[in-house]
Design a protein around this nucleic acid. Structure first.
Lengths: 342, 342
DNA sequence: TTGTAGGCGTTATCAC
DNA sequence: GTGATAACGCCTACAA
């Protein structure tokens, strides 16, 4: 009726509980013939070690917390789905599972993580959508709760993080456009101050400068919130400029889609490249910079688990003092019609 | 150092462990003054009951399994993100959390659910994307693992499910279009045989019939796989028909987006309504039928937990024999430019 | 090589 | 009203 326990397996195999445990955790210590008998019993009963009991015993839940946010309605589909799947897949490989929770804001997230951690429900947490002055890294560090962050804050980076090279992404977009003959290439991005947005702007600026095109394009740097409407508004402004650009690099697919809408409505000729390669980009035939999100997920799980070894013994070096295993991954440009037709 | 336990609280409050437990689980049994002292100690130490120990003790993990699928690349952003958040939120209200796992296919999913269930890691599972002949409901039923399904299979419905009224959704789209004066309204959907697709086609057909418009539109019923390319191809076919429609109801936003692309490319006048109200719909200014996905999430958690009472004692009636608390929820049409301009 | 004992943190049961 | 005892299933010493 109830799932079998070691006890049941032991009885079935005619050995003691510990022999069963040894077969599972230290097979070399048990005589082959005994092992075979025990393994047969395990198979026959369909025995699986009870994870809850294991967790209690080891004071390790093998669970990783993750806050699932309500989707921002004004923004397009994010790459969130892909990221979550990558995390789950990477976790599986390390015999860890994801535990989803909700929160109202970053402070609330820290509080909920602390509660879950104290309750032994999670060993650590993966942070998504890090902002420049994100309160979560310092908060969790102070609580000594293991975590890994997707993205970097402004100053603090003395904890595991994984990030994509945003500047390299926009730079690749510029390279592509320059190769296709564009000279005046605009940038449409977030307001200055957002770390991700600033890095994407940097990549655009640096790549232009490398080709000696910065002087002709520097004034074509427009910013606004991440929404379709803003993209459309900024696109409009670009088209009405007295020296309009022939191409635009956008900081997000959402902004790019807004620009694209204006372009199509006006029948203008303006190459557009977005960022994130959301499903919408494919739908719009929009060239976009694709984040290697699967690799990010795997790197984050690795970093998190390295940061918080299974059982930090008292003699082991303080994991919080160890050098974090952080990584910067390079995105890839996906070229589609929006930048390749004219 | 380590999180405080009942023991610590008891010591701090000068009572025994059980009194602490009573304060938490049967407050009426403890003298008010003692209770206050214990509660103060709990607050001061920041004590949280260890969920793992609770789970072991109660043989209930208060975890709900959920398979996270890799996103289908050819399809647009799904409503998956919203759904997951709704589930997590609803779970929180019931003191349950979601545990994410991966699987290669439905059979593998059942196997993984069984493993997790035997291991005591989950109490039940929420099924997403049910197809007509889905192997998961019968499989899980046979394993006596509690579950709730988003969607219905062909025959079997003797288990908790929540579904949206797909026919009502397309019918609402038709009503809207008829009100705006359209007479020939086409349908673009999945190949026949898919339960969801068939129901959406039914709604279209029935609504047309109600207005006596079915004869003029019956031939405008095109099917194909759920992709942008297919949508574009079918849209093309519709435009070149000798009696072309003036409006189209699509079974998904993906198909609708494909149609829309052709419409814009050709400058044709054709109203389009999609289904799912994905973020892409907003990006394309595409009217779309929106599923009340938050309500679905809540209903599913309710159904699942009602289906699997906390501790099904041997004397309790077999939960698998109880009447399932299933629900059909009505979607809502979101009108945008794609169907409201002309 | 195999078996015996104890405890991870919680709560239900039963005395006091 | 409060406190001792036992048990959930597992694993890690230690002993045989």
């Amino acid at each position: 009726m109830h799932p079998p326990t070691v006890e049941d397996v032991a009885r079935a195999a005619g050995v003691s509980r510990q022999t069963v445990s040894n077969v599972l955790n230290a097979p070399e210590r048990v005589r082959p013939e005994t092992r075979l008998r025990v393994e047969a019993a395990i198979d026959q009963l369909g025995y699986r070690p009870n994870r809850v009991a294991q967790s209690l015993r080891a004071s390790t839940s093998r669970m990783i917390g993750y806050r699932i946010e309500p989707m921002h309605p004004q923004s397009l589909a994010s790459i969130h789905d892909r990221f979550l799947h990558a995390l789950a897949e990477a976790g599986r490989a390390a015999d860890h599972h994801l535990l989803l929770f909700t929160a109202n804001d970053p402070e609330d997230e820290v509080a909920n993580v602390q509660a879950l951690h104290r309750a032994g429900a999670i060993d650590g947490v993966v942070l998504y959508g890090i902002s420049t002055d994100d309160p979560r890294p310092p908060g969790l560090r102070q609580l000594r709760i293991p975590f890994a962050a997707f993205g970097r804050t402004g100053a603090d980076s003395a904890h595991p993080w994984v990030d994509i090279d945003n500047a390299a992404g926009t730079a690749a977009a510029v390279e592509h456009l320059v190769t296709r003959g564009h000279q005046r290439i605009a940038f449409v991005g977030y307001p200055e101050g957002a770390a991700v947005g600033d890095r994407r702007a940097d990549g655009w600026r640096t790549a232009l400068d490398k080709h000696g095109l910065l002087d002709g394009s520097r004034h074509l740097d427009l910013r606004g919130e991440d929404s379709l409407a803003t993209g459309a508004r900024l696109g409009e402004a670009l088209l009405q400029h007295h020296t309009p650009p022939t191409a635009v690099v956008a900081a997000t697919d959402t902004l790019a889609a807004g620009v694209l809408r204006v372009v199509q409505r006006r029948g203008a000729r303006l190459a557009v490249v977005g960022f994130d390669d959301t499903p919408t980009a494919a739908a719009l035939d929009l060239s976009s910079v694709r984040q290697p999100i699967e690799a990010v997920g795997h790197a984050m799980i690795r970093a998190l688990l390295a940061y918080s070894p299974d059982r930090p013994g008292p003699s082991a070096p303080d994991p919080h003092g160890a050098e974090p295993t952080s990584q910067l991954l390079t995105p890839e440009l996906i070229v589609r019609a929006s930048s390749a037709l004219h």
